[in-house]
Computed example of a mutant assay.
Amino acid sequence: MQSPIEQQKVAAALKTLDISIGNLELLREEMQASLEAMEIIEEQVLHQNEKLIKERQLYYNLFKFAPNAYLVITTQGIIKEINYTAAALLNMLPSLLIGKPLINFVSQLERPLFRTKLNQSLNVKSVQEWEVSICPRNSQAFDALLLVKPVRDAAKTQSLLQLCLHDITKYKQTVKQSQLAASQQSVSNVPVETLHRLDGLHILFVDDEADTRELIAAVLKQYRIMVTTVASVTEALSELERSRPDIIISDIRMPEKDGYALIQKVKALEIEKGWQIPTIAFTAYLGEDRAKVLGAGFNSHLHKLAEPMELIAMIAQLTGRG
């Protein structure tokens, strides 16, 4: 027979056991409720994932079949994604372009400048405008405008560039034809004394695009201006060793050495030889910084889409023949 003390201990143990069983039952109910809640959350997550997958597929299809040419490249120029329109411009299947360097389709002369732009792309947060000559596979080259935006990939581990590619060959031809037509029309209305004031001026025009050189030379010659055209900074410096022009007009964006390199050489020559040659920066880039151009040493700045009379007026003003 148990003593009173032993009976008290048994009773206390039974009470503790009842409390533990109650706690376990409460815990089981809480776990059951948590499992039910997790099942609901899991179902919601699965539903959300399905929705995201459908949306991703929708946007992927919009990208793939968009009427505009889009592609995504690394900062080394490797193609990561490309849609059918862009692939058609490069004259290859999209699957064959993934992993290939985009620079393979850039003209040989412009590749050094294209590499420089790739290296500098991460330092620019806004949308950039790049104008390059694209050489599709087994097809004719065309003038292209690239709208470039730096982004991060989905995992935020790699920097990428989103590109929108436009063939602007016909646009540039149309603009140049209209400029030439406008110039031919306007020159017929220019007083004879104005033509005489410009008569005999010698202009050195620097641009890597042959059709631009031909157009500007044709415009200037109508005003009895003597024009020497060259395709590079190196050729321009060689020409400056032979003669001193009354004015220099130079493109800014050129492969190898650009217009900024030329103006530095011109300023050095002016100090060395006591010259003072007015200079005009002539650019096709809408985003070209006018303050940067003038700060580099150019006397004036003009966009290539400006009317021919604007160029003539600028030449007359800079040479004192206005």
Rank of each mutant, 00 (worst) to 15 (best):
L113P: 06
R115N: 07
T116R: 15
N119R: 15
Q120D: 10
L122F: 04
L122C: 08
L122Y: 05
K125I: 13
Q128G: 01
V132Q: 14
S133W: 06
C135V: 14
C135E: 12
P136I: 03
R137M: 13
S139I: 04
A141P: 11
F142E: 09
A144C: 10
L145E: 10
L146Q: 08
L147C: 06
L147F: 04
K149H: 09
A154V: 14
C164N: 13
C164M: 14
H166E: 11
D167E: 05
D167H: 00
D167R: 01
T169F: 05
K170R: 15
Y171Q: 12
Y171E: 14
Y171L: 15
Q173G: 02
K176S: 13
S183L: 07
S183W: 03
S183N: 07
Q185D: 12
Q185Y: 07
N189L: 15
V190G: 00
P191D: 08
T194C: 11
T194H: 06
L198Y: 02
L198C: 09
L201I: 09
I203K: 00
I203C: 03
V206R: 06
D207V: 00
D208V: 00
A210F: 14
D211S: 11
T212G: 07
T212H: 06
A218I: 08
A218K: 07
A218V: 08
V219G: 04
R224A: 12
I225T: 02
I225D: 01
I225R: 00
I225M: 03
V227E: 00
T229S: 12
V230S: 01
V233G: 09
V233T: 10
T234E: 11
L237H: 02
L237M: 14
S238V: 09
E239Q: 15
E239S: 13
E239W: 09
L240Y: 00
L240N: 00
E241W: 08
E241F: 06
R244F: 07
